[in-house]
């Protein structure tokens, strides 16, 4: 039995009729055609599907679309609405990616960290990103990117 679900995604209200078993990541990718949110492992391990749910980074492959009823979702597309976000700029500048598959999730987790902690230590960055796997970089340049992003955001004062 299908059910109606409505939520705010990247600032816009959306409403669809879906099966309750539809996962939030499929809702975002297939119903809304926002393909920046990736499916990596599909077994709740890799964090490539991370989105913000009411401001908190979560794995959208492990949430039902119906559970987001009435909530606010921000995807990677939402972060870059006013041009590239400073975190994105920092990942480009510091080469925080190779294949790029994990990057949207990395940026979502970094965003949650930097919103509550504008000047994190390396240890805090490592902890905050421990739910996001990268198979290319070895993480070094990702950490550098987040450090640089925190600097950019503090000087640009952009949220």
């Amino acid at each position: 039995m299908k059910v109606k679900v409505s939520m705010v995604v990247n600032g816009e209200k959306v409403e669809r009729v879906v099966q309750p078993r539809m996962l939030l990541v499929d809702f975002i990718r297939r119903e809304l055609r926002l393909t920046g949110t990736h499916v990596g492992c599909d077994t709740s391990s890799c964090g490539a599907c991370a989105v913000l749910l009411n401001g908190r980074a979560v794995k959208s492959c492990t949430i039902l679309a119906v559970q987001a009823e009435g909530k606010e979702i921000v995807t990677i597309e939402g972060l870059s609405k006013g041009g590239m976000h400073p975190i994105q700029k920092a990942f480009v500048e510091k080469q925080g990616l190779q294949c790029g598959y994990c990057t949207p999730g990395m940026i979502i987790s970094s965003y949650q960290l930097l919103s509550s902690n504008p000047n994190p230590s390396e240890e805090e960055i490592r902890k905050a990103l421990s739910g996001n796997l990268c198979r290319c970089t070895g993480y070094k340049t990702i950490i550098d990117s987040v450090k640089y992003a925190s600097k950019l955001m503090r000087t640009e004062k952009r949220k």
């Binding site: 964090g47 749910l53 980074a57 979560v58 421990s130 739910g131």
Partner: peptide, 9 residues
């Protein structure tokens, strides 16, 4: 427990 993404839910 788990990682920050899982602990948020």
């Amino acid at each position: 427990i788990a990682d920050p993404l899982v602990r948020n839910m």
